[in-house]
């Protein structure tokens, strides 16, 4: 099976500014997820380098590689790091980490960095899990919700589906938004059902007057994702006569945050526009880990 469709592009950047030499504490965070791994290097609260990679079969190797790529050609080496904090599914495998921290706190802290003081609800749309986090005004987690097991693997399943359908994972979202109207979503119970149902939507179903267009098929699929995510956000958020209320800013992190086919549909149902960041939303966990490491170092 050709993986060029489902394999989203990796990304690496390191700053060429020499400002890190005067910045004080330099810390790094590494977030090893089931599907993707990120590392972020922060100096005095500013982002100096990052890497966003596919995790692969070796969690430890992915962590090390990400850290080295994040340091890149900035001039910094691992020795310059005052502390490295690890998080994510594979955090126990990060040999170079001085400490580890749970994903929720790291994402919350990282979301504040990425989206500013206005963010109150963070929806982390990852490879295997969907998490929703509510924040207080200050940097403290108020509440947290994770998907039930039968929604596991949503992000990962999209990689598989795109490979099967020969549609790039970066294109399927925008393409889905070309649909004039959203058909009924496919099954929202489990991605195995959703994928099977979507694969069957091509061709000439006997009972439909006209077959669905390509955009409508993708719309039906991504609508199902959005619907399931709404359930997680909804269980966490205040409710007013049945409608889910988002007080303050909503932000998406994780790989599916880059899929407008999902995020726009969630926004539409909630009647809000999500906050955006100049940085890659997949970095939230790693950035948060780095910031929390710096705060620990400073004795905060």
């Amino acid at each position: 099976m050709d993986h060029k469709y489902g394999r989203w592009p990796e990304d690496v950047w390191s700053s060429h500014s020499a400002g890190w030499r005067q910045a004080g504490k330099i810390t790094a965070g590494i977030d090893v997820g089931t599907t993707s791994t990120q590392a972020a290097v922060l100096c005095g609260g500013a982002l100096y380098g990052y890497a966003n990679l596919h995790t692969g079969a070796d969690f430890g190797a992915a962590a090390g590689r990400a850290l080295d790529l994040a340091l890149g050609d900035s001039g910094m080496t691992r020795a310059d790091l005052a502390a490295v904090c690890g998080t994510g599914f594979g955090k126990r495998n990060i040999a170079c980490a001085d400490s580890t921290m749970d994903e929720v706190h790291c994402h919350a802290r990282g979301a504040r960095f990425l989206f500013g003081a206005g963010v109150r609800t963070v929806a982390d749309l990852g490879g295997q899990t969907v998490k929703a986090i509510r924040l207080y005004d200050w940097n403290r987690v108020r509440d947290f919700m994770i998907n039930d097991k039968c929604a596991t693997g949503e992000g990962r399943s999209l990689e598989v589906l795109c490979d099967l359908l020969h549609i790039s994972i970066t294109e399927i979202g925008p393409k889905s938004l070309e649909a004039e109207r959203d058909p009924e979503p496919v099954s929202t119970t489990c991605w195995a059902y959703a994928n099977a149902e979507t694969l069957g939507l091509f061709g000439r179903p006997e009972f439909k007057a006209e077959p669905l267009t390509e955009a409508e098929i993708y719309a039906s699929h991504l609508f199902a994702y959005a619907w399931r995510i709404l359930g997680v956000i909804g269980r966490l958020s205040p409710l007013d006569a049945g409608e889910i209320q988002i007080d303050g800013g909503l932000a998406f992190t994780g790989g599916l945050a880059k899929n407008p086919g999902i995020t726009r549909r969630i926004e539409r149902e909630l009647g809000v526009t999500a906050l955006t960041s100049r940085w890659d939303p997949m970095l939230a966990g790693a950035i948060g880990a780095a910031l929390l490491a710096a705060e620990q170092e400073a004795g905060e």
Binding site: Q128, T152, R156, W191
Partner: peptide, 16 residues
């Protein structure tokens, strides 16, 4: 369930 199976497989990798 193959979905749970994948998660379990990843957990096995996680434990080395």
């Amino acid at each position: 369930c193959m979905v749970f199976a994948e998660l379990d497989a990843l957990s096995m990798l996680n434990r080395g």
